[in-house]
């Protein structure tokens, strides 16, 4: 189906293998079940429930970071948790992406004044998509995944364009 979309009415597409892999990847984004706080209830539990049903997008949770492509940081990261977040990120195989879900993961959210809270998870791991809200609705998380898919599909093209510009 996705190939159709790529090629239009033709049944043959010339595509770089990296792009083909990225296309495949973008449709099976397995995320790590790593709920930290309130956002986890919306972003991980309601999301995998029957109404929002992320599975149909190929977005499925894995219990281990070794099998995951995406880390949804759903909650407040504090100084004690920071080390764990980084460790889990390092354990994920490449290529990997991070979604910062909720005000807390973006900037510290309602708890930003507390000295024990990290002001945004981008201080610890590189973030690809930020979702605003406290908590964001499951629909926003879905939208974030769609944006992430676009980002993944475009990355080879962007890299090639950058190389072309250089020469």
């Amino acid at each position: 189906m996705a190939i159709d979309r790529l090629t239009g009415e033709h049944s043959i597409a010339f595509i770089r293998s990296e792009q083909l892999f990225d296309l495949a990847r973008s449709h099976s984004l397995w995320y790590m079940a790593f709920g930290i706080a309130c956002c986890a209830i919306e972003g991980l539990m309601s999301a995998s429930g029957p109404r929002f049903d992320f599975d149909r997008m190929g977005v499925f949770f894995r219990a281990s970071p070794r099998q995951a492509d995406v880390m949804i940081v759903a909650g407040t990261v504090n100084l004690k948790m920071a080390e764990t977040v980084r460790m889990l990120y390092d354990q994920m195989p490449e290529p990997k992406w991070v979604v910062a879900m909720g005000a807390c993961a973006n900037t510290g959210g309602p708890f930003r004044e507390y000295p024990n809270v990290v002001l945004g998870v981008d201080k610890i791991v590189p973030v690809d998509v930020y979702i605003p809200g406290c908590p964001p609705r499951p629909e926003s998380v879905q939208y974030a995944f769609i944006e992430l898919q676009k980002k993944i599909r475009n990355r080879t093209g962007e890299r090639l364009a950058a190389r072309r510009d250089r020469t």
Binding site: L79, R112, E113, Y114, P115, N116, L119, G120, K123
Partner: peptide, 26 residues
């Protein structure tokens, strides 16, 4: 129990919360 070594005694009145400037300059 709750915090890591090196974190101040947070509920003491002498320990202030982050100011708005500190947060903005994150």
């Amino acid at each position: 129990l709750l915090t890591t070594d090196g974190v101040a005694a947070l509920l003491r009145k002498s320990v202030a919360v982050r100011s708005a400037e500190e947060v903005r300059a994150r």
